[in-house]
Amino acid sequence: MSDCGCEKAKAELEEYLHNELCSDDAADIREHLENCTDCTTEHHIGRVLTEAVQRACKEVAPEDLRDQVLLKLRAVQASH
């Protein structure tokens, strides 16, 4: 394996974070991250953001809030 370089690592970081790269490309990115502080920082930021979005997608609004929003939406729809 060879170090893929910052340009490739940053271009494929999103796919790497979601395990969407073939094993050879993922290994290249992983090797690069072991040796590059800048790309490791980018990877960390991407991982933190991905985890935050995943948590947010699992959250459910309280039932009374959902009811209020639906009532407002229906009122707006009825007025148009």
Rank of each mutant, 00 (worst) to 15 (best):
L49C: 08
V60F: 02
E12L: 11
A26K: 10
Y16R: 01
P62D: 08
V53C: 12
E12H: 00
R30L: 03
L33G: 05
Q54A: 07
D3V: 00
C22T: 05
K8I: 10
Q77H: 08
R66A: 14
E63R: 15
V60I: 09
S79P: 00
I29A: 03
R66E: 15
R66H: 03
C22W: 04
L70P: 03
H18Q: 13
V53L: 15
E20C: 05
D38A: 14
T50C: 06
R55G: 01
A56H: 08
C6D: 09
K58Y: 04
V48I: 14
L65D: 12
S2H: 10
N19D: 13
D24Q: 15
H44E: 14
A27E: 13
H43I: 00
S23H: 08
G46S: 04
E63W: 06
Q68L: 12
I29Q: 01
K58P: 03
R47C: 14
E63P: 03
D3A: 00
E42H: 03
R47A: 13
D25I: 00
H18P: 01
C6S: 04
L13T: 09
R47E: 13
A11G: 06
H18Y: 08
L70H: 13
L65S: 10
H32A: 04
E34K: 15
D38N: 12
H32Q: 04
A56L: 14
D24V: 15
A78M: 09
L17F: 07
Q77T: 06
R30D: 00
V53P: 03
L73F: 11
H80T: 14
K72A: 10
G5Q: 07
E63S: 11
H43C: 06
T40S: 15
P62T: 06
L17Y: 05
H32D: 07
C4R: 00
C4A: 09
R74D: 01
C6A: 05
K58L: 14
A61G: 04
L33Y: 05
K58M: 14
R74S: 02
C39N: 03
V60T: 11
A52V: 08
G46W: 01
L49M: 10
V48G: 02
H44D: 14
K8G: 02
